[in-house]
Amino acid sequence: MRRSSLIAIAPLLLVLATGAAQAHAFLDHAEPRVGNKVATPPREVTLWFTQKLEPAFSRITVTNAAGERVDSGKTRVSGSQMSVPLRGGGTGTYHVNWHVLSVDTHTTEGNFTFQVGQ
């Protein structure tokens, strides 16, 4: 009855399971930090994800307080890190929108803001 003893092991292994791995790319942290305030407009925005990204289908767009695009449109991806250079866009609330494809073929997207100046 070796098979049935194997059947008994499977649920046991599942019960013991407590791992918490990531299986899709989620935002781990960003620079400027999410929701934070910086004195001057940053030269670029960098996002770190929980997983490797596909450069061909991952991008960041950034708009300033007036709603104008201030990113260069040239998102760079390196492993699980993604950044985009910014043009100066004045003070106020900046909106960062990201859309990424992780190497396991799943897309995720999200957005956050940070403050520039006062």
Binding site: L6, I9, A17, A21
Partner: peptide
């Protein structure tokens, strides 16, 4: 095959499910 499926399936579930 069955032995391999059970062990590797448990590893996969441990990583992707995380808790009962």
């Amino acid at each position: 095959s069955v032995g391999t499926l059970l062990v590797t399936g448990a590893i996969h579930s441990w990583i992707l499910v995380g808790s009962l």
